[in-house]
Nucleic acid binder design. Structure first.
Length: 580
RNA sequence: UGGGGCGUCGUCAAGCGGUAAGACACAGGAUUUUGAUUCCUGCAUUCGGAGGUUCGAAUCCUCCCGCCCCAGCCA
């Protein structure tokens, strides 16, 4: 992969030390273990990049494993979308996708083993009673009346739970640890519950399902995982993770290491909040380009490489953090600046008529220019000239393309100002600017409508500046992008901005949706884009020169009605200076 | 007020007893047919606070302060 080496972090330090001590015979196996109950977001990308990245760097392996132990919440559609997202990010998990449900049989056997050792028992306490017996943060819990049920009875009951003899909630299997533990996770945690429910993969085979704590560590062990990386909130579960692995005849004892999850400013990351935005239609589905979901940022035009570089740039630690989206955008621009072909588009068109562009020019210019001779149409009406433009000024190998110039063109409304300050390097009455790859033009006349709004500019061009260079060495401060009537097609452009007004969407309000940015999506209908963009491939990002990076929308763009999403703007120091 | 974590530049983050990396942001300047890119330059005498150990501490010890997580038959 093209990105730089992953920089040092505490996890790599641990692994390096393990390797030096000869632990795990030099193997490094990690896993990415999503529960298929939602869509992946950029926070997951951090975990994915970490797990796959570390495995890759130490010549190990990373398993993609679905933690599918709760059929009440899980669904095949999530499995499918997660697979597609991880693949899109560019990671490879070999030939096998793992599922915790593949281990249900082994897990059941481990549970029986625990019961036989007197380390687990079937409990009849219901949920409310269980809560009561658990105690509080400061007081120890009470032992369940079933805690000392004879082993044989536990074995029998557990088997009957499995056989479907009892209703949901009638019994649970609990590990027998310590009801007085200061760590609540060790107060005889439930490890199996009855759920008479069909599972996306095992269908109706099981009516008891193992809990996360019981499943996770043992699945890790079954896969030979050496380093089990998870987020901070599982730190309190580690003693249970270790206890289980020690009490049961597991093939190995993986090491759980916790790291801080990523938070991004101006957005939300929790499943619950994302779901609210989607369900209450604040956004248009899980792949809305404003969302931090993988599907969303992909549709927005983000590239896998940009996300990988970003995940590498933010590092891995154990502190709470809120990363500046600016860093993400910067990683994106870095990647896009390299790869995106340049093109011209005018999103707020202002008509410009070139007064001295006429039939006569046609004859005089044709003599000494092959291209214009071939492609110029000197029909009965007006001349259309074809000019050469670079697809990437810094990368000649990306080639050139022809763009059409004619009497009627469009420039950006923003690029004209009637009473312009000296620092405004663009068009104003009497001022001369360069039209990129075309000619120098001078503004001669401003036409307004009845409301006083500028609707058209009459300019003259200098034929000697063809291509944008002036033979007399005359300088011009501004270069504008443009598009001609004949060389462009209409398009819709959607301008996306941050979803929230506050860095922390939670701030100041009871309901985070009150902090939503009302201008997070601005749809522009009357835009004009270079003709070549009619068949732009969805998700392929172009730089619209001087505006930003854009890609055709994968869902709504058609050759008849192109729709472009703004991926990210260009850095704009003028806008910044102008604001001051 | 039980337990588990965390506190180094505006935001991330290296550092692991030898005298504060890097990235983004920010501020200047150069080049530029994108006010883009690129390129220079600057940006923590100080590591949550106070003591202590040491020739020497962000790194070791003590106390204090602040923030996060845990009482699902969720993961």
């Amino acid at each position: 992969m093209e990105e730089k080496k992953i920089k040092g972090n505490f996890i790599k330090t641990i692994i390096t030390e393990d390797l030096e001590r000869g632990k795990n015979d030099g193997r490094v196996i990690t896993r990415f273990p999503p529960e298929p109950n939602g869509y992946l977001h950029i926070g997951h990308a951090k975990s994915i990049c970490l797990n796959f990245g570390v495995a890759d760097e130490f010549n190990g392996r990373c398993n993609l494993r679905f933690d599918d132990t709760n059929p009440a919440k899980e669904d095949q559609k999530y499995i499918d979308s997660i697979i597609s997202d991880v693949k899109w990010l560019g990671f490879d998990w070999g030939d096998k996708i793992h599922y915790a449900s593949d281990y249900f049989e082994n897990l059941y056997d481990y549970a029986v083993e625990l019961i036989e050792k007197g380390k687990a028992y079937v409990c009849t306490l219901n949920a409310d009673q269980m809560r009561e017996y658990r105690g509080t943060l400061t007081e120890p819990g009470k032992e369940s009346p079933d805690r000392n049920r004879p082993i044989a009875e536990n074995l029998d009951l557990f088997k009957r739970m499995k056989n479907g003899e009892f209703e949901d909630g009638a019994y649970v299997l609990r590990a027998k640890i310590d009801m007085a533990s200061p760590n609540i996770n060790m107060r005889d945690p439930v490890i199996y519950r009855i759920k008479k429910m069909s599972h996306p993969r095992t269908k109706d085979k099981w009516c008891i399902y193992p809990m996360y704590d019981f499943t996770h560590g043992l699945s890790d062990a079954l896969e030979g995982v050496t380093h089990s990386l998870c987020t901070l909130e599982f730190q309190d579960h580690r003693p249970l993770y270790d206890w289980l692995l020690d009490e049961v005849s597991a093939p190995c004892h993986p090491q759980q290491i916790e790291f801080a999850r990523m938070n991004l400013n101006y957005t939300v990351m929790s499943k619950r909040k994302l779901q609210k935005l989607v369900e209450q239609k604040f956004v248009d589905g899980w792949d809305d380009p404003r969302l931090p979901t993988i599907a969303g940022i992909r549709r927005r035009g983000y590239t896998p490489a940009a996300i990988r570089n970003f995940c590498n740039a933010i590092g891995v630690g154990k502190r709470e953090n809120r990363i500046d989206v600016g860093l993400l955008e910067n990683c994106l621009r870095d990647d896009l600046n390299e790869k995106a072909p340049r093109v011209m588009a005018v999103i707020n068109p202002l008509k410009v008529t070139i007064a001295n562009w006429n039939q006569e020019n046609c004859n005089s210019e044709q003599k000494n220019d092959d291209k214009s001779q071939q492609e110029t149409s000197c029909g009965s009406t007006l001349k259309i000239e074809s000019l050469e433009a670079l697809n990437h000024p810094q990368k000649p190998e990306m080639g050139t393309r022809q763009i059409l110039f004619s009497k009627h063109i469009y420039i950006e409304k923003e690029d004209f100002m009637e009473n312009a300050p000296k620092k405004f390097f663009r068009l104003a009455p009497g001022r001369e600017v360069r039209l990129r790859y075309a000619y120098f033009i001078t503004c001669k006349e401003v036409i307004k409508d009845e409301n006083g709004e500028v609707i058209e500019l009459i300019c003259t061009y200098d034929p000697a500046t063809r291509g944008g260079d002036s033979p007399d060495g005359r300088k011009v401060k501004g270069t504008l992008h443009w598009v001609s009537e004949e060389g462009s097609i209409p398009a819709t452009v959607r301008l996306y901005d941050r979803l929230f007004l506050n860095e922390d969407p939670e701030a100041d309000r009871d309901d985070f949706t009150e902090n939503l940015n009302p201008d997070s999506l601005v749809t522009l209908k009357g835009c004009r884009v270079e003709k070549s963009l009619a068949n732009a491939e969805p998700e392929k990002v172009y730089q619209f020169e001087r505006l930003g990076y854009f890609c055709a929308d994968s869902k709504e763009s058609t050759p008849e009605h192109p729709v472009f999403n703004r991926t990210v703007t260009l850095r704009d120091t003028w806008a910044k200076v102008n604001k001051k």
